[in-house]
Design a binder for these strands. Structure first.
Lengths: 176, 176
DNA sequence: CTAAAGTTTCAAGAAGTTTTGAAACCTCAA
DNA sequence: TTGAGGTTTCAAAACTTCTTGAAACTTTAG
């Protein structure tokens, strides 16, 4: 009732976990989330917190936090095993859907905030400042606003599964 | 020869700079890079390191480092003013091109490394491991490899300015 | 109701990152 | 060749973020 006889996680698996951990980190998530998800993704059967901690050399606390983040994003699901008291977890395998969700809930949100912040800033630019330079500045801020609108519509299309055409971006704030 | 009479940078401008700083940070760059670029972008004339440092309350060292990063990415260009000895800088305004370059040189590179790492890991998975579970794991690693290939081709298309169709992603590693 | 197993929270410590300030280094003019 | 103005480098300080471990909490079995 306590003794995991053989650790069935190979070196190679841990490498995959670390690789994905780095990728997730690059993507703005925490590295442990990626490592943990990977172990679950590679496991034929759901795993419990204890196994995960043991394999990844993470404390119970760290496991708990990473799992709750993963659950929030729907990247991991809780399951139960008939007799067992403790919780088990399994990976959500629909990576595409996960990516889509992050784009929708995080990136799109970010672009919107960005646009709002620019709108506010524009409003508080002096109507006509020292010299005529504030007209120039206003122009530039507007250009950035166009960019953010464009990003917003591209992301929206992506999230809706529509094809997107990147050429408009190249013309934004552009010279040539 | 030393006295900037009136600081022509308004509060609103600094807010824009901070906003873009945060955005850049989110994008995996350093916040000061974004703040600095913004000041240049909003300035009708090139600025020198000293002005930048004064406006943004950054030390000369920090300015120098941020500028060299920006120069590396082509986000800022060096210029000279007739009589003046010191360097001046101006922002590259072609934001679209900059984005494209980052996608090409950084994101694409990352996806490639990711694919390579997976390939290596797959190679070092036991041919037939304990139970038959290593077949399962191999399947899953292959699925991840498909994902990385797909990401690579989407990015490549984006960078080449071609339209992309996101629907294949939704099917990767997917259930439904 | 109590105790055991499991999980979550959170303050303190560890690790990592960014910023600074001073020294080294260039470059040009005299 | 020297020195003033300007820039870059880099070790140390300041700050942030991450991880741990212990305590508090929850749940279930007896």
């Amino acid at each position: 009732m306590s003794d995991p006889p053989a650790p069935p996680v190979t070196q190679a698996e841990l490498e995959v976990a670390d690789t994905i951990g780095k990728l997730m980190e690059f993507w703005g998530f925490k590295r442990p989330m990626g490592r943990l998800w990977t172990l679950l993704y590679l496991s034929p059967a759901p795993l419990g917190a204890a196994e995960l901690g043991e394999q990844l050399k993470m404390s119970a606390g760290a496991i708990s936090m990473a799992l709750s983040d993963l659950l929030k994003w729907g990247a991991v699901k809780k399951t139960w095993r008939p007799g067992e008291r403790r919780d088990f977890y399994e990976a959500e395998t629909g990576v595409g859907k996960l990516v889509q969700r992050v784009l929708r809930e995080r990136e799109l949100e970010l672009v919107r905030q960005f646009g709002d912040a620019l709108a506010n800033a524009e409003a508080s630019l002096p109507k006509t400042g020292p010299r005529q330079s504030s007209d120039f500045k206003r122009e530039r801020v507007q250009e950035l606003r166009r960019l953010s609108k464009l990003g917003e519509s591209l992301l929206t299309a992506l999230v809706a599964g529509k094809s997107i055409d990147p050429t408009p971006i190249l013309k934004v704030s552009g010279d040539s």
